[in-house]
């Protein structure tokens, strides 16, 4: 897991901020005490001080340097799907994790779960929602890295499979945004086997020609990378994401040499043939909608496809 990206953005800038910014603008009104916490944040890549609301509007992409920061799964899905009310339906939201091994390290797994649940307001690390993408019914899954490093345990696997099953039954594409450190150690072999479970569900989709688009975001490592994330009909990565099987530190310790510049980043994967393309988060919706139109053309043309959106899209895109 990457380190050093979790500093509290509220703390770091104070001295710099006072010197460079506050002194130039209305100091009397903007003293430290009147700045609401979390109004500003710093881009971890270019160190620019950014207005948080603007960053949020920009889908957590730095407006200055385009660095893609991590984004909550639910926020991502919200921005990705069409907004028309009543078109979304969450899948597997009633599932909650258990602790079959009564796992305890320095902390109990149960306590770690409770803490993560409080912190994220989610029951587990994957959110799956059925909705519309430019009018086309799709299922979207997105990991929450904040929830125990986006690790895949039984609930993540089951939610993913339920999403895939809806795609199978209703013949609609599946899209997954991964952000995960890998399998969840606290569920031991059960979580390892989620790799096989999710991959088998994807094989079913492939058998009947339902597209699966995998979008790897920062970071996609270990068991998630070595299962569902690498199995896209189209593999997409966000710019600069760390993607790989073994973590860079483990590799460094094993091979005892310095890792090459840009190792395991999206651009490196593109160069080595592991992914099809790198797509900016702000263009993701359009690019995927466009790709799906082509992948789904044979189904859309069928009289019983239930997708009447093909014409609509042509109309709306020509009027854009």
């Amino acid at each position: 897991m990457a380190e050093g990206e979790d500093e509290d953005p509220g703390v770091f800038t104070v001295s710099w901020f006072h010197k460079k910014v506050l002194s130039k603008i209305r100091t009397e009104a903007l003293t430290k005490s009147t700045v609401p916490e979390g109004l500003w944040c710093k881009c971890p890549a270019c160190n620019s001080i950014l207005y948080k609301a603007e960053v949020e509007r920009n889908l957590e992409v730095c407006p200055k340097c385009s660095h893609h920061m991590r984004i909550h799964g639910r926020k991502r899905i919200h921005a990705f799907l069409d907004v028309e009310p009543g078109t979304r339906q969450e899948i597997g939201e009633t599932l909650a994790p258990l602790d079959p091994l009564k796992f305890k390290d320095s902390k109990k797994y149960k306590d770690r779960l409770t803490q993560a649940q409080k912190q994220t307001s989610e029951k587990d690390a994957l959110v799956v929602v059925k909705g519309l993408l430019r009018g086309r019914p799709v299922v979207v899954a997105a990991f929450n890295f904040e929830f125990m490093a986006g690790s895949m345990g039984s609930v993540v696997g089951e939610r993913f499979v339920r999403g895939a099953n809806i795609c199978l039954e209703q013949q609609m594409p599946l899209i997954c945004f991964s952000a995960s450190g890998g399998a969840r150690m606290q569920e031991s072999l059960l979580s390892l086997f989620q790799m096989a479970k999710t991959s088998a569900a994807l094989a079913k989709l492939a058998d009947v020609g339902i597209p699966f688009i995998s979008v790897m975001t920062d970071p996609t490592m270990g068991g998630v990378s070595a299962s569902l994330a690498m199995l896209g009909d189209i593999n997409i990565a966000e710019p600069g994401a760390l993607i790989g099987f073994a973590g860079p530190r483990v590799i460094e310790q094993t091979v005892r040499e310095k890792l090459p510049e840009g190792f395991q980043r999206s651009e490196f994967l593109l160069e080595h043939g592991a992914i099809d393309m790198i797509v900016d988060r702000r263009e993701m919706r359009d690019r995927i909608a466009c790709l799906l139109d082509m992948l789904m053309h044979h189904r859309d043309d069928e009289p019983h496809s239930g997708v009447s959106r093909r014409k609509n899209l042509t109309v709306s895109s020509s009027s854009d």
Binding site: M195, A200, V255, E257, H272, A274
Partner: peptide, 26 residues
Amino acid sequence: GAYPGIGAEERGQSEAIARNLFEMSR
């Protein structure tokens, strides 16, 4: 475990494992 090396990552260790899970299921 699978080898955590530079070349292994370059040649797609993750994909190789994932592909086997996918294909073995059927």
